[in-house]
């Protein structure tokens, strides 16, 4: 009797796990299919408009093939890679400056009351001012070279990094600090071995948000004041009414953002191996 029940239980468990695996496999196929369907619908709509029933001026929405063609052309001419490199350079340098300043000041203000009282009001005074509000000024001060864009990105990215660092430092469980103290930890030991690792999940998510933000604002900066970059490419194509190239710019930005997010997510899970939320993904 109990044997039979055990066999049944094992069978049910196996069937359930097979069902789970099959359904996982199905959903793994559905995800890329969704993207494919989108491009197919786009293709279908433009094709119907061009060949069956005219609903809008075909110049306004090019076909996926036209965009692809624009991509191939600008790749061959070398323009595309120059624009991508220019945007990436600004994002990376600006973000690096913001990351160092945001984490550094976030940690400093959490550890010293004097610097908190002296610096926090000023930082909070600037927080509500959107970075775009400073862009024309930055161009005036630094010209339309790289500096204005780097400063602009650093400013925009600083706040999420700074805030997340502050939050991470503030949310440290006091009992962990006491545990370290009862093992003879000095103040600098506690900072290195308790506070920094304890705040790291929050700091990392701040860095990720900051990087996303950098990517977000660079395009706007390049609309206004640049002679290269993906934002420049989009805006420049507008003057020539080159809609395929405008869409190409948007798609390239999407792809780069998508790839970077995957890399950062992998990196974060590696660093936060210990975190319950990062396991099993």
């Amino acid at each position: 009797m109990s044997d039979i029940m055990q066999i049944d239980a094992a069978m049910i468990a196996r069937t359930a796990s097979v069902q789970k695996r099959n359904s996982d496999r199905l959903h793994a196929c559905l995800r890329p299919l969704s993207v494919f369907l989108f491009f197919f619908a786009w293709f279908l709509a433009t094709w119907l408009n061009n060949h069956v029933m005219r609903m809008y001026n075909p110049i306004l929405i090019p076909t996926p093939l036209q965009v692809l063609q624009a991509g191939i052309e600008s790749w061959k001419s070398g323009d595309l890679i120059v624009d991508i490199a220019a945007s990436m350079y600004r994002v990376v340098v600006g973000f690096a400056v913001a990351a160092i300043a945001g984490v550094g000041l976030g940690v400093l203000l959490s550890r010293s009351r004097l610097s908190e009282s002296l610096l926090e009001p000023v930082i909070e005074m600037f927080r509500p001012v959107p970075s775009l509000a400073f862009l024309p000024l930055l161009v005036l001060w630094f010209g339309i070279g790289e500096t204005s864009k780097v400063v602009f990105i650093a400013y925009a990215t600083f706040f999420p990094v700074f805030t997340a660092t502050r939050l991470g430092m503030r949310q440290i469980d006091g009992v962990l600090i006491r545990a370290a103290q009862s093992m003879g930890a000095s103040r600098s030991d506690i900072f290195r071995h308790v506070e920094l690792p304890a705040a790291s999940p929050s700091i990392l998510s701040g860095l990720r948000m900051g990087f996303g933000m950098a990517f977000f604002v660079i395009v706007a900066a390049e609309y206004i004041a640049a002679e290269s970059g993906l934002g420049f490419m989009i805006n420049n194509s507008r003057t020539y009414f080159d809609v395929p190239r405008m869409l190409l710019g948007a798609i390239i930005i999407g792809i780069i953002g998508f790839l970077i997010n995957i890399v950062l997510g992998k990196l974060e899970r590696r660093v936060l191996r210990w975190h319950p939320n990062s396991r099993g993904k």
Partner: peptide, 14 residues
């Protein structure tokens, strides 16, 4: 010199 064991374990999660 005074080791402590806490009710909430206080292990370093990382």
């Amino acid at each position: 010199d005074r080791g402590m064991v806490f009710q909430e374990y206080a292990l370093f999660p990382w």
